[in-house]
Each structure stands twice: as structure tokens, then as C-alpha cells.
Design a protein around this nucleic acid. Structure first.
Length: 453
RNA sequence: UGGGGCGUGGUCCAACCGGUAGGACACCGCACUGUUAAUGCGGAUGGUGAAGGUUCGAAUCCUUCCGCCCCAGCCA
């Protein structure tokens, strides 16, 4: 460490990015031009050209190219030559501007300390070339080290951060819904059953909605944000068995209030990512011009208007049909930003949806379809506030009345109109990142038949 | 659960109307003082998902099983 000099005391701004040991992060390297610094990280790749080595280091914040000359830095040259991919290293050297280096800066390495050398007999399994999905998923614990995956996870973090920031700014209080629940929220077929204390059975939550409805009657405007679980045997690019959902719920709110909240939320997230994670969007080669128009207002069309559009584009859909993937793709391709579809037939929506008083065959529900065919990212609407109607629907659905008594209480004691929605975090991130599958946008995806690693 | 597709060296693929299983990358060595998933030359390793059947002969054809991918249903 003695080889890394302390920064000059008169350069306060720059000293902020140097810790007490003189160690900096790669993303801040440009602020240390012509200074000698120390980096801690891993060897990402090593190119060789005669008596010159071009190691590329990564430290989690970025990549930087190093240069080592055998003539000028014989010790560093000897330490790096033949070093294996992903070996952990601490290096010291001078940062300099270099247009030939990726990123614009490089480090002239003068000192190398290898913390752990990856043995040649068992080289790091993930190459810089192409791999199949199954191979990568089996090694997800290593796959996350690649720049593309790290960028996706940073965008995921920014999405969560911006989502909470927006909800808080709108006066919503974060309230946490339970993970263990006594009964299904919508149906019982997709629940994960777990053994609870003694002989009791419990289920992993498939939605926090019923609970945030209770909390909305207590606090006014609330939201929950956490994992949810569905045991559906869906093996598509849009499904995970464990995924994260943000669910706002507001007392005295109506369908239109939620549509306005939803478009504001999605827009704030997208604009925050574009502003704060531009480098990651670049790494992913995601076309930012597709995301720039994502600002309020989003187009709002009724289910019946959507039917018209679909028929004009050759889809054979009848009133009462739900939209499949092809239909969603066609609808989303009509607009440069997400589209909101509202007032679906009540028969294809959940039991707790409030009917439209002007058209009782329609439910006051809405979906937000992401652009470019990415499909549904938000689903929600107004909830039934009448005790009698809710009880009738529970019986029609043959749901266990006993387990829903507390939910019925919300209609017994000061029932009010209220509304909310659920936003699937992974679907939003997959759309923003332009990934093929939602499994890439959660650190350790849980899918049907896959719980490793 | 239904429909479609696919399982070949460590990885990504080729051979698949039956006839000696091959390439690229990775790994090791040599060369190269500005490389950009470096390049050139050389080297070692090592494979037909499993079981059964047809055949002189099966990666190839048939049956069953296993695993994976995509789509549909359901949903975020």
C-alpha cells in the first residue's frame, strides 16, 4: 500500500473517491488522471502482444485496461503473464488518458498482487464467447460477473429506487404485506404450500393486494413492494415462480386515479434509468430512443376499442375473449409508449373487481402493456366495495369464505371506493433492458423446475 | 397439461435420405512493443443424454425414458 501516495490535500473533490488505503473504483478512474492509484478486482481478460501485456480488470464498477511493458515493469509483467481469467488481483499504477483504450483511460501497471490465482487445471468456465442459456443458468453465480449481467442488475436497482421515490413523492406509505398467507388471493391451484407451525398449512403469497386494501383503509394511500410466488407451470419468457411486485392501493380512489398513477410511475422509472444508468443502457446496446418517449400521458383505450384495432389487423377476437401474447404485441405496436387498456369484460377479470355502474358487464380494471411487444407490466383497477356483492362473488368462485372473513370486514366497517394495481418488477426491467427473458433480470431466477443455484 | 423444437469434446456448432465422428473457441507452448472477444504457427486433451430394437454396420432409422428450450392456458 505504501506505493500508493496520498492525494494532495488541496484536491478535496478528488480525494473523496480515494479511501484511506489509496484505493479507487474503476468508474472514478477518470478523476485520477496522472495519479498513481490502487485498484482491487479481478482479471477479466488478458491480451498479449510481444513484450506488452494488456490486462483488463474489473472491480464491479466497470472495466479498465492495463498496460505492462516487460522492459519497463518486469515484476508486474512476470506476475500478470499467463494469469488466468477471474483471478483476484490488487494492482497499482498510474491512470492516464488513452484514446486507444476502451473507456478512454488505462492504467500503467507498476505493481501487482495476486490474491488468488484461478488454477489452469480448472479454468473459469464462462468464456468471453457465446454460451447456451442452460449452461449459463447453471452457473448463474458466476454469470452475474459479466458486464452485461452486472448492468442489468444495476438497472434493476435503479428501477426499484425510482419506483419507491415516485410512490413516496405521491404521498404513498410503504407498508409490507406478509409472505405467509392462510389462503389464496385468486385461486388455489398456483400456490406454494408450506408446513406452518405444528400441523397448520400456510401458503406463500401470490399477491399483497388483499392486505394493502386493509392498510389503505388505515393509512389512506399505501403500497407494498416485495416478492410473490406462483407455482404455475408457465415456462415462458415472461414468467418466474418467484418475482417482485409493487402494489399501490388507495382509499377513495377510482380507476382513472390508478391509471394516472401507473403512467406516472412507469414514466418516472424509465426517465430515471435513462438519466442515471445511461452507461448501462449503452453496455446493453439498448436503443434509448425507444424509451425516451415514455412520458405521460399514455394512450388510454377501452377493451372494446382494442377489439376494433385487433380486428383491423386481422385478429379473430370475439367480445369476451382475453388477449394473448399475439394480441398484446399488435396493440403495443400501435403506440410509441405503453398503452393502457381499461374496462374489460367482468367475466375475464378477478372476482374482486368493481363492475362499471354504466355497464355492469364490464369491470373497472386496466392493464398497462409495455411498448415493443413486451406485454403486460401492470394490472389493476377498482375493488368491489359492497359487502353483498363481494360475498356473492366469493361464493360464485367457490373460495373458502372462512379465510376471507377479515377481507369482508373491510366492507363491514366503513367501506369506501378504493383502487390499486400490481406492477411486475421483472417485466418492467426486462422491457427497459430489452432482454429476451425475465430470468436475466433477477439475480437468482426461480422457475418451474429450477431452484439452483 | 397440450403443441412444436432440441440433446454430439470444457464451450458453441457441423456430420443426420445408415458406411473411418469433424471444426471453431477454450487450454498449453512459441513469435510479435498498442492490443480491442488481438493475431499467426505448433501441441495435448477429450464427445454422440439413457435403455432397448432394426441392421453386416446407428450420432443418423424405430420404441420408451430423462433433461432443456419455445408457444398456449394463467398471470405481473
Amino acid at each position: 500500500m505504501s506505493s500508493a501516495p496520498s492525494p494532495p490535500p488541496n484536491r478535496k473533490a478528488k480525494s473523496k473517491t480515494v479511501n484511506a488505503m489509496g484505493i479507487i473504483t474503476i468508474e472514478k478512474a477518470g478523476e485520477h488522471e496522472d495519479q498513481e492509484v490502487t485498484l482491487r478486482g479481478w482479471l477479466y481478460n488478458l491480451r498479449e502482444s510481444g513484450k506488452l501485456l494488456f490486462p483488463i480488470f474489473r472491480d464491479g464498477t466497470g472495466l479498465i485496461q492495463g498496460v505492462v511493458s516487460q522492459k519497463e515493469q518486469p515484476d508486474a509483467f512476470a506476475a500478470l503473464r499467463g494469469l488466468t481469467q477471474e483471478s483476484s488481483v490488487e494492482i497499482t499504477g498510474k491512470i492516464r488518458r488513452e484514446p486507444r483504450a476502451p473507456g478512454g483511460y488505462e492504467i500503467g501497471v507498476s505493481r501487482v498482487q495476486v490474491l488468488q490465482r484461478v488454477p489452469e487445471s480448472e479454468p473459469y468456465p464462462i468464456q468471453l464467447k457465446e454460451h447456451g442459456v442452460d449452461f449459463l443458468l447453471d452457473r448463474r453465480h458466476l454469470w452475474v460477473r459479466t458486464p452485461r449481467q452486472a448492468s442489468i442488475l444495476r438497472i434493476r436497482a435503479e428501477t426499484s429506487r425510482a419506483a419507491r421515490e415516485f410512490m413516496d413523492s405521491q404521498g404513498y406509505t410503504l407498508t409490507d404485506a406478509p409472505i405467509f398467507t392462510p389462503a389464496a388471493c385468486e385461486g388455489t391451484t398456483t400456490l406454494f404450500e408450506v408446513q406452518y407451525v405444528d400441523d397448520e398449512k400456510a401458503y406463500l403469497t401470490q399477491s399483497g393486494q388483499l392486505y394493502v386494501e386493509a392498510l389503505a383503509a388505515a393509512l389512506g394511500k399505501v403500497y407494498c413492494f416485495g416478492p410473490t410466488f406462483r407455482a404455475e407451470k408457465s415456462k415462458t419468457r415472461r414468467h418466474l415462480t418467484e418475482f417482485w411486485m409493487l402494489e399501490p392501493e388507495a382509499a377513495y380512489a377510482h380507476l382513472e386515479d390508478m391509471m394516472t398513477l401507473g403512467e406516472g410511475l412507469v414514466s418516472h422509472i424509465v426517465q430515471s434509468v435513462l438519466r442515471n444508468r445511461a452507461r448501462e443502457i449503452e453496455t446493453l446496446k439498448r436503443d434509448a430512443s425507444k424509451l425516451e418517449p415514455v412520458k405521460p400521458p399514455f394512450p388510454r383505450i377501452t377493451y372494446e376499442q382494442a377489439l376494433e384495432i385487433l380486428r383491423q389487423h386481422g385478429h379473430d377476437v370475439k367480445w369476451g375473449d382475453d388477449f394473448g401474447g399475439d394480441e398484446e404485441t399488435t396493440l403495443s405496436q400501435q403506440f410509441d409508449r405503453p398503452v393502457m387498456i381499461h374496462r374489460y369484460p367482468a367475466s375475464i377479470k378477478a372476482f374482486y373487481m368493481e363492475p362499471d355502474s354504466a355497464r355492469p358487464d364490464l369491470a373497472l380494471g386496466f392493464d398497462v402493456l409495455a411498448s415493443e411487444g413486451y406485454g403486460e407490466i401492470i394490472g389493476g383497477g377498482e375493488r368491489i366495495s359492497s359487502y353483498e356483492l363481494l360475498l356473492k362473488r366469493l361464493r360464485e368462485q367457490k373460495l373458502p369464505e372462512q379465510a376471507f372473513q377479515w377481507y369482508l370486514d373491510l366492507r363491514r366497517y366503513g367501506s369506501v371506493p378504493h383502487a390499486g394495481f400490481g406492477m411486475g418488477l421483472e417485466r418492467v426491467v426486462a422491457w427497459i433492458c430489452g432482454t429476451e427473458h425475465v430470468r436475466e433480470v433477477i439475480p437468482f431466477p426461480r422457475m418451474i423446475y429450477r431452484v439452483y443455484p
